[in-house]
Design a protein around this nucleic acid. Sequence first.
DNA 1: CCATAAATGTCGATT
DNA 2: AATCGACGTTTATGG
Lengths: 223, 223
Amino acid sequence: MRLVIARCSIDYAGRLSTHLPSAVRLLIVKADGSVLVHADGGGYKPLNWMSAPCTLVEEPGDGQRALLWRVANRTGESMTITVEEILHDSDHDLGLDPGLVKDGVEKHLQELLAERCHVLGDGFTLVRREYQTDIGPVDLLCRDGEGGYVAVEIKRRGEIDGVEQLSRYLQRLGSSLGGVRGVFAALAFRPQAKVLAADREIVCVQLDYDALRGMEPLNPRLF
Amino acid sequence: MRLVIARCSIDYAGRLSTHLPSAVRLLIVKADGSVLVHADGGGYKPLNWMSAPCTLVEEPGDGQRALLWRVANRTGESMTITVEEILHDSDHDLGLDPGLVKDGVEKHLQELLAERCHVLGDGFTLVRREYQTDIGPVDLLCRDGEGGYVAVEIKRRGEIDGVEQLSRYLQRLGSSLGGVRGVFAALAFRPQAKVLAADREIVCVQLDYDALRGMEPLNPRLF
DNA sequence: CCATAAATGTCGATT
DNA sequence: AATCGACGTTTATGG
């Protein structure tokens, strides 16, 4: 990894066109060839970047003209860094990163609810996780206390997209299973998602992550 | 901006929990207090980060114990960096960045089409750009050759979300304007978006950006 | 490779 | 603060 602090201006042309006027910035050249341009603030997103695979060609400055870094990829995107002054330049051997271990996302919620689907409604029992339809898998397919089918969509955050997604599943399943209710389960809901769900007769169930984890599974695997 | 190359392990707890085993990484501390952790590859997204506003407290190591960086924000998210070995540590004064100048996105398409809406259909004339409804603005409201209303949704990429969005507008407008057709305009379409649009009797119009720009406006402003 | 859905999404505008 | 839509979304995952 090469770290350069430089006064530079930058032009990007690709999915859109951007220009960065001259200023002092951090330029990162990673081992895989990718280039990041960071300012001294403004979140984790670089001002400009080019992801690997890409090529970096340095055109040396001749005293008069500034140094040019031409970064490009195969799809025709290009980033040109006009380097006017280099204030720092260092190289570092980092080695491979073992990578990030994540915990606690939507899949985990699905696992927990699959074995505790009674929290979604009285007498609910699980038919299948990831019930396949030709427009994608339904998170959970259950039966309610009266034996009717229920399609369950699970999200960390309940937003309008989730209601639309579940609506499509319900329309799709309704014809094959003969009437399916919808339950939208999430840790938190946007108000508009609740409104749309109510409009579509979809029940919203707010989940409590800690309570779910502390709860004994009621549909235990018997082996 | 402080740049540190260090062997470290990192734990984040907040919207989810993550752990990074010990490895050599780049730690960036920006002037606004934000902290980024980068590996030597893998796109522009840091392995871990904490955006401003946040606080960084360094607990000095006592020879035995490693140095601890505790980064936290007001919403209770925390990132703990266990610094085992510092290989590089430098500080740089970058100053304020003048910021990015962007050009050429969806808004530009909307501007072009507003004055060339005949490319969307025979005899189309513009009623209004950003026609307001209580669920959001319709990109373009037009009339077709027979005087019927047409709601136009414009995207760079035509995907299923755009069809859903336009569908909501059509349902909303249908009651007030008495029957509105839908046109979905984009530079490119996903196959499934086309299928869903056809299902909803929405016409998909594929745009040619270069051709649009080269075309004379047919609804010129008369001043 | 295309397609979909998730993301610590982020970011900006607007209410 | 909440919400909505765009993003050079990026990223992971499955066909």
